[in-house]
Design a protein around this nucleic acid. Structure first.
Lengths: 222, 222
DNA sequence: ACCTGAACACCGTTCAAGT
DNA sequence: ACCTGAACACCGTTCAAGT
């Protein structure tokens, strides 16, 4: 974090607002109007100032988004009792991270912008890595296991929030539907047979099922 | 696809360039200058025209990116002999999709923009779904299995290309490094012990290992 | 039908100056 | 040290008109 939030012996002009107020205002805008409305200009008016003043509290927009995610994680991720069985512990911790991220739609922007190890999430990462070690993996393989879970989790969120967003702002047929209807009848019999079921099937929430399978696969080959 | 590419009985002005030329020009720009330089204006000059002329061949920028991905898939995804063993078939097909997507850096933009079932990739999806059915899953569970693989694959690509991009355009320490150095010594012993190893470990390519584990986990619980 | 010029309604960020 | 005004260097897209 570039700007120190520790109070200095105010040798200059007193600040009109704090970094925390900036983040709070950003949170408000995202909650009420959506990520796409969060611009530096809009944020400046929300905070009662000018765009440039923001750059005294935040390096740039990318950092603002990371801070926003961090703020979200800090207020939604609460450490809870963890199951003793290590595999269940891994699943529980991963699901907690997933749940926290699932309802913040600006996550995609941040995912693309940083590798997102919010400080508040670290305890959960610890649970996952420790769970893998308890299953007999070396620490190195445990990190790779965490990594696989992270790919799976991040992918689920990116794909799903992208789908949600698309559904929200227009109703024209998706490229997928197009592709399915263009399917030559002879080829690809499995897909052809599933064409009608595909939409409903992919709308189901199977995050936990896949997560369980992944954890099993990762731990059974110790 | 909105614009019909079938030749009409030219009742008006003859086109100065085709949709294919637009896509080719876009491909050139991305290859030589990077995704971030692909703007409608830049593309117009590349094609020797004006921004607005593009909108006669392409609905908007989002569609352009989907077409670009489709074009990439069509020229890199080649159907090859598949292993008979169904699990190996799933892994091979998924890895082929992954490989094709891994070296197109604009993938993140498109992932966020559409659910990316390029027509050229369908044959590979068929292999995956059929492989799961051959392992004894119902067609419905087979689709969920494909879905899990897709999350894992998309996540790996998004996270890795984001990391690459970040590394490319600045060298300041990542948020992750920051977080690790701020780690309180008593807590989170696993992470503390792995702090130095984390960077190198996550730089390793473990896509295939995770994929194998996922496929095993998905098929072993028939 | 296809293309153009000019404009609309924005962006994030920098610079130079003010208090 | 902190904030402001004005500007820079862009965006994607629409409109109205031309050929």
């Amino acid at each position: 974090m570039p700007q120190p939030s520790a109070p200095r012996r105010n040798p200059g002009r007193p600040p009109r607002f704090t970094r925390e107020e900036v983040i709070g205002a950003a949170r408000r805008i995202v909650a009420e109007e959506g990520v796409e409305r969060l611009t530096m200009r809009r944020l400046a008016t929300e905070v009662g100032s000018t765009p440039m003043a923001l750059y005294h509290h935040v390096r740039n927009k990318e950092e603002l988004l990371v801070l926003l995610l961090d703020d979200h994680a800090a207020r939604t991720l609460r450490r809870t009792a963890m199951p003793a069985e290590p595999r269940e512990r891994i699943v529980t911790a991963a699901a907690a991270i997933h749940r926290a991220l699932a309802d913040c739609p600006w996550i995609v922007e941040v995912l693309t912008a940083d590798d997102l190890l919010s400080a508040s999430a670290l305890w959960f990462v610890e649970q996952i890595v420790d769970g893998f070690v308890a299953c007999g993996l070396t620490p190195e393989r445990a990190v790779h296991g965490y990594r696989a879970i992270w790919y799976y989790t991040a992918g689920e969120i990116v794909v799903r929030t992208a789908a949600d967003r698309r559904r929200a702002d227009d109703d024209r047929p998706t490229y997928r539907e197009q592709v399915f209807t263009d399917l030559a009848p002879g080829e690809l019999p499995r897909l052809a047979g599933l064409a009608d079921a595909w939409g409903p099937l992919t709308a189901e929430d199977t995050y936990l099922d896949g997560l369980r399978a992944l954890v099993e696969g990762l731990t059974e080959r110790g």
